[in-house]
Amino acid sequence: MDILLTSLQQIMSPVTAAYALAAIGLNLHFGFTGLLNFGHAGFLAIGAYGFAISVAVLDLPVVVALLVAVALAVLFALLIGIPTLRLRADYLAIVTIAASEIIRFTVNSSVLAGLTGGAQGINNNEAMGNSYSQAFKDANPFDAGRVEIGPWVFTATQLWAAILTWVVVAVVAALVWALMRSPWGLVLKGIREDEHALTSLGKNVRLYKTQSLIIGGVIGALAGIMLVLPSTVAPGDFNSRLTFNLFTVLLLGGAATILGPVLGAIVFWVLLQASDGLIQLGERGGWLGGFADASQLRFTLVGIVLVVLIVFRPQGMLGDRKELAFDDK
């Protein structure tokens, strides 16, 4: 029962909101435009580092830091997008994953340690005066103390973070909805289906793809900021597992739907928490004694879920059976 309650509390977590937001960005790439972006973690890393370095290292105001993160994400999208968007789907996948790994290796490297903190990442420590999330904490309108909602207890900080992050998710989801019902959105979906057909009808396919990559990438960068606000920035968090987790989120909820990423993120984290709880239970009971680190079995589960989804229910929970999210050519 405890496991269930803890798992459900995960819904309110800023991390879940960050995943939802990141998956919305990925959905624009993959679900709507058909771009096989396997380097989404790179966009999140750029957002997180761009923001945290601006505030904690360069002492810039939060608004400027946000702009820096967005600008860097646009730059990254242009850098990988302009030359690569003419490539085949599997090549694009390899280039994007390579690009995101380059980002991760670079921020992890000792070369830039003065800015990025190298392998240690960036601290977010109020006491040491280098907290990049201080401005958000200061803006908290709730009185310090605890808030009880049903069986769950939140601190004021947690409540404020939950509200702030989920409002951002809602706003961005609404924005994507508005975009996708416009003729612009229809062109994106057309490109997903067959870009040559769209070219033959006079649409500048690479321009649209670049726009999609930029918008989805900026959304990813914002998600990256969200992801690190409650904790610290660590280079290891932005490995390709993050990207693949996001694909699982997207496929769980349903690609090419507006609320799929949101629902997917919630279900993903609740399941991940629940399985973690079950694994701990199993460890305590001694059933998982043969494993060196049984908690990692969660990600084995994620992998299996990904395979099962893509094979048996590619439309996810919210998708239309007929409008499968993939090209079956």
Binding site: A178, S182, P183, W184, E193, L201, K322
Partner: peptide, 29 residues
Amino acid sequence: TRVLGRLTVLENMLVGARHQPGETLRRAL
């Protein structure tokens, strides 16, 4: 043939129209 399989027949037609103001990002919203 290159029909857009997971769009409706009507959407296939609409995507073909030229001079659509809503096709630019600025006006789409």
